[in-house]
Simulated assay, not measured.
Amino acid sequence: MRRINDLIERVFLKVAGTLFAIFIVTILYQVVARNYLKISVAWSDEVAMACFIWSVFLGAAVALRRRQHYVIEVLPKHFVITNRALRLLGGLACLPLIYVLVVHGQILTDMGWNRRSVSLGTPMAYVFMVIPISGVAMLLFSLEILHEDLRALCAGHQSSPAAVEEHTQP
């Protein structure tokens, strides 16, 4: 599973980085066209929005795997087993949100085939489909993380917290 998730993460990072670069270039082009060339570029808003949405959702999935979302540590680090249990509980608490992203994101995508963007005329489903795609990736990443957290919790005091932290970071 780790190899599959590694591949997904690499693809997501490359696609998100490329789309974010396109977002920056599109916004720059829009500013130059409007302020210096005195022309209106109608399509640039929609392209920039789509690129930004895709890069944010793909980046959020990668951040989940890397455990880079905000975490509030309630207890000091020397409460090793309790902190591991809370970390596992936090991972389980993400699953309902992932369900919403996958199931309701697919519903939104299906509805998006009947909606068209204003200036490009493309189906909005192309923008919305990143929601279930990132949700499926988050599910795969969460299964890997939950497995690691459960294994660390079962290990108890056998390994130090630093060793577990080092092992869980990709």
Rank of each mutant, 00 (worst) to 15 (best):
M138G: 03
M129V: 11
I131A: 07
L95M: 05
P161S: 05
T109F: 04
Y99R: 02
A125W: 05
P96L: 02
V102T: 09
R116P: 04
G135S: 07
L101V: 07
L139T: 11
S159P: 00
Q106M: 12
V127A: 10
R151F: 00
I145L: 14
G121Y: 05
S119H: 07
L108A: 15
M111F: 11
V102Y: 04
L150H: 00
S159L: 05
R151L: 04
A162F: 03
L150V: 02
G121T: 10
T122H: 12
P123C: 08
A125C: 02
S117A: 15
S160R: 04
A155H: 01
I98Y: 00
L95R: 01
R116M: 15
M138W: 01
L143N: 04
L139R: 06
F128I: 12
Y126E: 11
F128S: 14
N114Y: 06
M111H: 12
V127I: 08
G135A: 05
V130D: 09
V102R: 03
S160N: 06
A137H: 08
S159A: 07
L146N: 06
L120N: 10
A125S: 11
V100W: 08
P161R: 03
S117L: 14
V127P: 00
Y99D: 11
C94N: 00
G112I: 10
H147S: 09
V127S: 06
P161N: 01
L92F: 13
A152H: 09
L92M: 14
G135Q: 07
I133M: 12
A155N: 06
T109A: 03
L146F: 01
S142E: 14
Q106Y: 13
E144H: 05
L97Q: 06
M124N: 15
T109I: 08
A93C: 10
F141M: 13
A152W: 03
G112W: 11
S117D: 14
T122R: 11
H147C: 03
R115T: 15
E148Y: 06
L146C: 06
A155P: 00
Y99G: 13
E148Q: 13
M124K: 14
V130Q: 07
V127R: 00
G121F: 03
P161Y: 02
P161T: 07
L95E: 05
M111Y: 14
F128Q: 15
L92Q: 06
V102A: 07
A93S: 12
N114A: 12
L92T: 09
Y99V: 10
V103R: 02
G156R: 03
I107E: 15
G105T: 06
R151I: 00
L139P: 11
D149N: 04
R116T: 13
A155Y: 01
A162Q: 12
H104Y: 13
F141H: 13
L146T: 07
R151C: 01
L97K: 00
L120E: 12
C154G: 02
F128E: 15
Q106H: 11
V127W: 05
R151V: 02
L143R: 03
V103Q: 05
A163G: 05
G135E: 05
G121N: 02
L140C: 15
L150Q: 01
M124H: 14
V130I: 13
E148G: 09
C94S: 03
Q158A: 15
V103C: 06
T109G: 06
T122N: 09
H147V: 03
